[in-house]
């Protein structure tokens, strides 16, 4: 195992794109600082050298223009990958995303396909404040017509990117900055895992059991999965066995895996770095509750970002972020208190 090749998520993403670009001449990449610089977050490094300026295009700071252009290119038989540098910037270009990219397939009755990947960085924890630190998973997942994925490790990052590039639908590929393997953003070591050289797909819409357990199910995505795994290790010492579900995709959502896990453990904690209300955490809890709550041993809990803009000051931001301690505390309470009959 020591000799196995480990990659960062950034390198795994770039490798998936490069492999697909070798196979499929319709794949091209555009965005701000993705060519010469290789992406602010490193995920397009090396592509310019191999594929040249036509297929790896630095764009002006014109997200509405180039994301709209990606829609037009996708409708014309190309498979564009565009980068929205920070997901927070969706405010300047959301029309191209949710009114064009996500609706043209439907409005054309399926006569136009929009096979494109929009990759965008998410997440905070490094004091960049509320215009560069949000996750906004739920905002994208809420709106129909686009698939939404977010990997927690490099193996999934490569497989999800390959699957996204081969999908005939628009895919929002959200990568968490804290998992990217960029030293300057802090690095979650658990995200750097073995990645096979050869091309492979991770099915979009399929969750993974990141850790088996029997007392409580912790459902999360991206960075939250690592917090959940750390919490599970602590809980193990308490004699509480936690199962960790890594959603990997939000659209389609693997409701079956979530329900099966909670059916087994009877307890559910959702960890979500996106805002608390009207988001992914509520959706996961509803997914379980809609099918009947008779098996639940405790009310479901969510550990999410409070409904406030993300603050700058370190102590304030860290106070708001989900972390293993919060998960451990919730799990301990839940495993002590049963739901009254």
């Amino acid at each position: 195992m020591e000799n196995e090749r480990k990659l960062t998520i950034a390198r795994a993403m770039a490798e998936a794109m490069a492999q697909e670009m070798r196979l499929d001449p319709t794949v091209f990449v555009m965005g701000e600082d993705i060519a010469e610089l290789g992406g602010v977050f490193g995920n397009t490094r090396g592509l310019l050298d191999e594929f040249g300026k036509e297929r790896v295009r630095d764009t002006p700071i014109s997200e509405t223009g180039f994301i709209g252009a990606a829609v037009g290119a996708a409708q014309d038989g190309m498979r564009p990958v565009v980068e929205l540098m920070f997901v927070d910037f969706f405010g300047v270009c959301f029309d191209a995303i949710y009114n064009l990219m996500a609706k043209n397939t439907y409005f054309s009755g399926g006569n136009f396909k929009v096979p494109m990947v929009l990759m965008t960085s998410t997440g905070g924890g490094y004091s960049d404040a509320g215009q560069h630190s949000q996750c906004l998973y739920g905002s994208f997942a809420h709106l129909p017509g686009m698939k939404v994925v977010s990997p927690s490790n490099a193996y999934d990052a490569k497989g999800l990117m390959t699957a996204a590039l081969r999908d005939d639908n628009p895919v929002i590929y959200m990568f968490h900055k804290g998992l990217q393997g960029m030293g300057w953003l802090g690095t979650e070591a658990g995200a750097n895992v073995h990645v096979p050289e050869e091309s492979y797909e991770i099915e979009i819409g399929k969750a993974a059991i990141a850790r088996q357990g029997s007392d409580v199910t912790i459902v999360s995505i991206a960075m939250g999965v690592h917090n959940a795994l750390k919490a599970a290790s602590v809980l193990e010492a308490d004699g509480i066995s936690a199962e960790v579900v890594d959603l990997r995709s939000l659209v389609p959502l693997d409701r079956e895996t979530v329900r099966a896990s909670v059916g087994k453990t009877g307890r559910l904690i959702v960890v979500d770095e996106d805002y608390h209300s009207y988001g992914v955490s509520g959706e996961i809890i509803a997914t379980v509750c809609e099918t009947g709550v008779s098996g639940l041993k405790a009310p479901p809990r969510r550990i999410a970002y409070p409904d406030v803009p993300i603050p700058f000051a370190r102590v304030m931001e860290q106070h708001c972020l989900p972390n293993p301690d919060k998960i451990v505390a919730a799990a301990r309470e839940m495993c002590r208190v049963a739901v009254p009959a």
Binding site: G65, F66, A69, A73, D76
Partner: peptide, 9 residues
């Protein structure tokens, strides 16, 4: 945007 993208394609 889509017209520019079609042209680019």
């Amino acid at each position: 945007g889509p017209a520019a993208g079609g042209a680019l394609s």
